[in-house]
């Protein structure tokens, strides 16, 4: 991935409200508009220095699915035939709210 060549660390950490940490590729994480803004080097937020973002409204199970989506999105960006992303029905509403919050 092109993230290797960037001066910023290739990975960032997303922390759920119940303390789970997800370390994911910065490129993938920045697909989410909110994360991208928070980690924008020009912004000078604390998140930039720590490469770490706490998400007080999203729990671990949902955040894991969000991360899966971010990689799914990144992987299929150029695909002609995008496979379906499996979304368990019991998660879909929480995911919807999380997606709205993260702008993804």
């Amino acid at each position: 991935m092109s993230a290797q060549s960037q001066p910023l660390s290739a990975y960032v950490t997303l922390v759920s409200n119940d303390g789970y940490e997800f370390k994911i590729l910065r490129d993938a994480a920045c697909i989410a508009g909110t994360i991208k803004k928070a980690l924008d080097p020009a912004s000078g937020f604390r998140e930039v220095a720590e490469n770490r973002m706490e998400l007080p409204t999203i729990n671990g199970v949902v955040l894991e699915k969000v991360c899966e989506y971010l990689y799914y999105n990144q992987k299929n960006m150029e695909s002609k035939d995008v496979p379906d992303l499996e979304i368990p029905p019991e998660l879909c509403l929480e995911l919807l709210i999380a997606a709205d919050y993260l702008d993804v």
Binding site: Y69, N76, S79, L91
Partner: peptide, 10 residues
């Protein structure tokens, strides 16, 4: 990109 947004998928 043909990937739908997570909000739409959910």
């Amino acid at each position: 990109s043909k990937v739908l947004s997570l909000a739409t998928l959910s």
